[in-house]
C-alpha cells in the first residue's frame, strides 16, 4: 500500500521503542524486527500513520518493540482487528504480525477471509513450523513425523503450505523470504507496503529453541544459492551458485534444467511474471520443493475492498436525500398527533 508521504527523513532508530526485546538470543525474529525498522524509513510513510497489530505467540510481541501505534490482541484475531483499523482510517499503513499457529490454526478462518477480501494492508507470517510461546507443540506447518511436546511419537497431522493456502484464498500478493536474509526482506516489506491490496509475506523463521535448524537445508550459507530461487518480476528464473540452473515448464510441471546442457539456453528459461492474474504458475512455484521459491511470487494488482466501498459510498451519498439523521427520522410514514 502507498499512503502518505513525508518530508521528514527517518532512520531505523525512529521506529525503535524503549522496550527491552525479549525474544530468545539468536532468534530470527530479531532479523525481522530490524529489517522492518530499516524498511519503514524507506517507505515514505509518516510514523504516526503506521500501525502494527498482532495476535498471540512469539511473533506477536512485535508491536511492543516498535515505536509506532500498535495493539497486541488475542490469539488468531489480528486480521479482524487490523481490518477494522484500516476500514476506520484508510490513510493508515497497517501491518499484521503473526505466526504459523496464530494465522493458520486458531486464526485460520480470518486468514482466508482477509486474503479473499483484499483490504489494503500487510501481513508478515513468521513461520517456524512449531509453537514457540507455548513451548514446543506441533503447528499446522509442522511436518508429518515431527517429534514435538504434543507429538512425542511423531506428528500425524499433514501440514499446510502457507503459500498454497493463501493463493487458494485468492491472495493477490504473496512473498516468501528466509529469516537469514535481512536485505531482501526489507525490500520485500517496502514492496508490500507499496502494493495496493492485502500483502502476505511468509518468513521462514528459525526457532532456536524448539525447532532449531528446520530450514537449514535451504538456508545454510553453503547451500542457499543452490537450494533457493529468488524470483524477481520480469527476470528469468535462474538460480545456483554459478547462475546456471533454471526452471522450464515440462508438460504440467516445473523442471530444473542446467543452462548449457542438453542444448538448453537462457532463452528456454521461464521469465517470472508476478503480476499475472492467472495464478497457475504461481501455485506451481509455491509448491516447488527444489529449489525453494523465495521473493515476490505473486503481485497481482486488483481492486481493493476500500476502492469498492468508497465508490459505492460516493454513489449512495450523491443520490441520497438523507444528509442528516433528522432527514431520515422525519421522512416517509410519519404522522402528527395534535
Amino acid at each position: 500500500m502507498e499512503t502518505t508521504t513525508t518530508e521528514k527523513k527517518y532512520t531505523f532508530k525512529d521506529f525503535t521503542s524503549d522496550q527491552e526485546v525479549r525474544w530468545c538470543p539468536g532468534c530470527d525474529d530479531y532479523v525481522i524486527l530490524r529489517s522492518m525498522q530499516k524498511a519503514l524509513p524507506e517507505m515514505g510513510v509518516k510514523k504516526e500513520d503506521v500501525v502494527f497489530i498482532s495476535g498471540i505467540g512469539c511473533s506477536s510481541r512485535f508491536p511492543y518493540y516498535m515505536s509506532t501505534y500498535g495493539m497486541h490482541t488475542i490469539h488468531g484475531r489480528a486480521p479482524g482487528i487490523a481490518s477494522g483499523v484500516k476500514m476506520a482510517n484508510p490513510n493508515l499503513s497497517v501491518w499484521i504480525m503473526t505466526g504459523d499457529g496464530d494465522s493458520m490454526a486458531i486464526g485460520g478462518n480470518h486468514f482466508i477471509h482477509l486474503l479473499r477480501r483484499n483490504i489494503d494492508l500487510n501481513m508478515v507470517m513468521f513461520n517456524n513450523e512449531i509453537y514457540g510461546l507455548t513451548k514446543g507443540q506441533f503447528s499446522p506447518t509442522s511436518l508429518i513425523g515431527q517429534k514435538t511436546k504434543s507429538s512425542p511419537y511423531g506428528n500425524t497431522q499433514p501440514p499446510f503450505s502457507p503459500g498454497e493456502l493463501a493463493l487458494g484464498a485468492n491472495a493477490r500478493f504473496f512473498a516468501r523470504i528466509t529469516g537469514n536474509n535481512p536485505k531482501d526482506m526489507a525490500q520485500i516489506f517496502i514492496d508490500a507496503h507499496k502494493f495496493k491490496g492485502t500483502s502476505l509475506i511468509e518468513v521462514l523463521q528459525n526457532c532456536v529453541i524448539f525447532n532449531d535448524g528446520c530450514f537449514d537445508e535451504v538456508t545454510d550459507k553453503e547451500v542457499k544459492e543452490d537450494m533457493q530461487i529468488f524470483l524477481e518480476h520480469g527476470k528469468p528464473m535462474i538460480f545456483g551458485k554459478n547462475k546456471d540452473k533454471g526452471l522450464v515448464l515440462n508438460k504440467l510441471k516445473l523442471e530444473v534444467v542446467t543452462i548449457g546442457e542438453n542444448g538448453v539456453t537462457q532463452e528456454d528459461i521461464l521469465v517470472h511474471n508476478a503480476k499475472e492474474e492467472d495464478k497457475t504458475l504461481h501455485q506451481m512455484l509455491v509448491r516447488l520443493e527444489y529449489p525453494l521459491a523465495t521473493g515476490i511470487i505473486r503481485s497481482f494488482a486488483d481492486v481493493t475492498l476500500e476502492e469498492r466501498e468508497d465508490a459505492l459510498t460516493a454513489e449512495v451519498k450523491a443520490n441520497s436525500k438523507f444528509k442528516k439523521t433528522d432527514d431520515l427520522f422525519f421522512s416517509g410514514e410519519t404522522y402528527e398527533v395534535k
Partner: peptide, 9 residues
C-alpha cells in the same frame, strides 16, 4: 474484533 480495531482507530 473488526469493531475493536475501528474503536482503536
Amino acid at each position: 474484533t473488526s469493531a475493536i480495531g475501528a474503536a482503536f482507530a
